[in-house]
């Protein structure tokens, strides 16, 4: 399957929509996009409805983001597909993302 990935922010402020297979080739985009959000110190929601797959490097970015959030700010991940949930379970971070 071809890599089709795009972080888009067309929706309301504070929501990032991810789609496609998020792999090592799109790390820069994903990291930069989250960095912009990080400095704003806001609650953030990531919509994963259109995410087909994620690799370890991408997951690691999300973990670092979640871990580094200042107190009082939340990262919510919504529309998680069973496939994505399975990946997180195998990597051992499912509880971390699904809690809250």
């Amino acid at each position: 399957m071809a890599d089709t990935y795009s972080p888009s922010q067309e929706q309301a402020e504070g929501i990032i929509k991810l789609s496609g297979e998020i792999g090592v080739h799109h790390l820069d985009d994903l990291y930069e996009c989250l960095k912009d959000r990080f400095v704003l110190e806001q609650d953030l929601t990531i919509d994963c409805q259109e995410v087909a797959q994620m690799d370890t490097a991408a997951i690691q970015i999300l973990i670092a983001f979640k871990k580094s959030l200042t107190k009082g700010h939340k990262l919510t991940i919504k529309n998680i597909s069973p496939a994505l949930e399975k990946v997180w379970e195998i990597i051992g971070v499912k509880q971390m993302f699904l809690k809250e």
Partner: peptide, 17 residues
């Protein structure tokens, strides 16, 4: 996750886990 640096300091192309 103990080797994972803060988000702003990480190199996304390196594996810390």
């Amino acid at each position: 996750l103990s080797s994972l640096p803060p988000f702003m300091e990480m190199d996304p192309f390196q594996l810390y886990l």
